[in-house]
Simulated scan of single mutants.
Amino acid sequence: MTRFRLLALLPLAALLSGCDAVVLNPSGDIALQQRDLVVISTVLMLLIIIPVMSLIVLFAWRYRASNTAARYEPDWAHSTQLELVIWSAPLLIIICLGAITWMGTHLLDPFRPLGRVAENRPIATEATPLEVEVVALDWKWLFIYPEQGIATVNELAAPVDRPISFRITASSVMNSFYVPALAGQVYAMPGMETKLQAVINKAGTYGGFSANYSGAGFSGMRFAFHGLSNGDFDKWIARAKADAGKLDRPTYLALERPSENVPVRRYGTVEAGLFKAIRNMCVEPGKMCMSEMMAIDARGGLGLEGLKNVLALQYDKNARRGTPPDGVRTYVAGICTPDDTDGSASATPLRPRSATPILGLGLPRPDATPFRFDSSARTSRAATNS
């Protein structure tokens, strides 16, 4: 019976032999270094796990009840030599793991510019990274190539052995950008920008997906990443440019609406400053950008009258997630245009265009007359109530 069971498992083993453990066999230098960290850490931990598991089996067999030849020492209590082995070996392994973790954390920092394209292959001084702006939408991926002036949905490409600089954000909820063959996952968050520096070293088509659950269409957030030669990458860009589609703000707002299993789309032109508006959450016409709001807050804010500085929201991106209707939704109205603001961390507060204080969008200046408490009126009201 046992033989028949083993024979039945052979087809399953054959199926498993076709699996491609991409995490352990990546095609990018960053992913390769991360693979090495996993392997080294596993080997260091096995230096303790294997001897301990082996000794458990050895002691159970050697000191079994039926083995009367084994030494019997019921009064044994302490061994200095054994204590040294028990504590020193794990301590040395923890020190090694700590040193490897510290070096890997700094050398493989996603924000750190690459120093090489592969082992023993430093980056050429004249090489420039390929800039790619990544936006996690519901439930698809938008890739903008600012240098080439194109954009794609659920399709990404890059030349082999050329550094890639990803700028990553999201439209609504937190997501995670992950191409296992290229590098580790990096989170995409609305109103924020994360970065990833990577390089692909082998031509081919690799899978990319979201590694963070983000709603009903999460399982369809997959895209193809193409590692191409320089010539093939130029052809890929040319095919995208040949597309008549234009990714402007109205088109983006329509694309931003939740949709599942979206096919590949290409846009031959992209509106300037679109990614900055997405990151600052002000793609909608008239909406105040986060950078503008922070600049106003740095100068003292708009006061209580600023609470009235709102406009109706044309489209509620959260309505598909069960948000209860509660009347007309609003957002803070813009005072400047999005191009007037800069969402970079080093941006300085904007100076007013004139000496007149900022009052909001058409709002009257608040009354500066101080409030005075009228004690006689309070006394008269108390007498009337009584």
Rank of each mutant, 00 (worst) to 15 (best):
E193C: 09
A151T: 06
D232F: 03
A238P: 05
G208H: 10
I144V: 14
G220E: 05
G184A: 14
R239K: 15
F225N: 04
L182S: 01
Q185W: 07
S210F: 00
K235N: 12
W236Q: 12
R239N: 11
S165R: 15
G149R: 07
Q197W: 10
K241V: 08
A157G: 07
G220D: 10
Y145S: 07
L182N: 06
A157S: 11
A224W: 04
Y206V: 01
V199H: 03
A254Q: 15
P180A: 08
K195F: 11
T194W: 06
L142P: 00
E147G: 10
G215C: 06
V173A: 00
L255P: 00
K202M: 03
F218V: 09
M221P: 04
Y252E: 09
A198D: 00
R167I: 04
S171R: 05
R162H: 12
T169V: 00
D243F: 02
Y178K: 10
V135D: 04
T251F: 07
Y252S: 11
L137R: 08
L253W: 06
P146H: 05
A188S: 13
A183W: 02
A216D: 12
D243L: 05
V186Y: 03
A244N: 10
I168Q: 06
K235H: 08
R222F: 08
K235C: 00
F233R: 06
Y213M: 09
